[in-house]
Design a protein around this nucleic acid. Sequence first.
DNA 1: CAATAGATCATCT
DNA 2: GATGATCTATTGC
Length: 200
Amino acid sequence: MEWRQIERETEILPESFYARPTVEVARDLLGKILVHGQTAGRIVETEAYLGLEDLAAHASRGITARTRVLFGPPGRAYVYFIYGRYECLNLVAEAEGTPGCVLIRALEPLAGITIMRRRRSAARSVEDLASGPGKLTLAMGISRRHYGAQVTRGALTVRRWKNEPGFEVLATPRIGIRHCADWPLRFLIAGNRCVSRRTS
DNA sequence: CAATAGATCATCT
DNA sequence: GATGATCTATTGC
């Protein structure tokens, strides 16, 4: 996709978009465009992580050096390091003082695909370049240096189509967690080939 | 195709 | 000192 088209037909999401219940933000982020540097992708899979009541959420342990940004203002990036290897991107939701974030789990590559291929040499197809939370941060060049960054301005932003196309949303349990494993807080675009796992 | 072992380290106990 | 919001390669059917 041409950058000119992205710039003309999309606009950056305002901070007010994120200052809402986390589950709503997670569902509404589907179809939006994540932009970083020369790469862009359409968000096709997300997960909501809530506050103290959600034992799968990092915020359930309270404020620490790592979770500090989750308790701050919305529209910030929460990037954490996992399994000694990978980094995962979340967007902070809810009003300041209330924790909550949305894990970005998969993207459909839109621009900068050559760059993504270089960063993701293990991927065998365009659909697999960003089809997982660890894969998409590699493909887009996102890392912990973005911890706390505003996604309403700067190099890392999220945009919406001025005329957003319709699609069907599915809700399923979240992936790879132990606690609250049956809560239906994973959202994905039905039938999209870039989601992290095929649905039955 | 499905199942699983191994890599590897920041974070928290 | 144990654990984990993952990914890849490899094994086995």
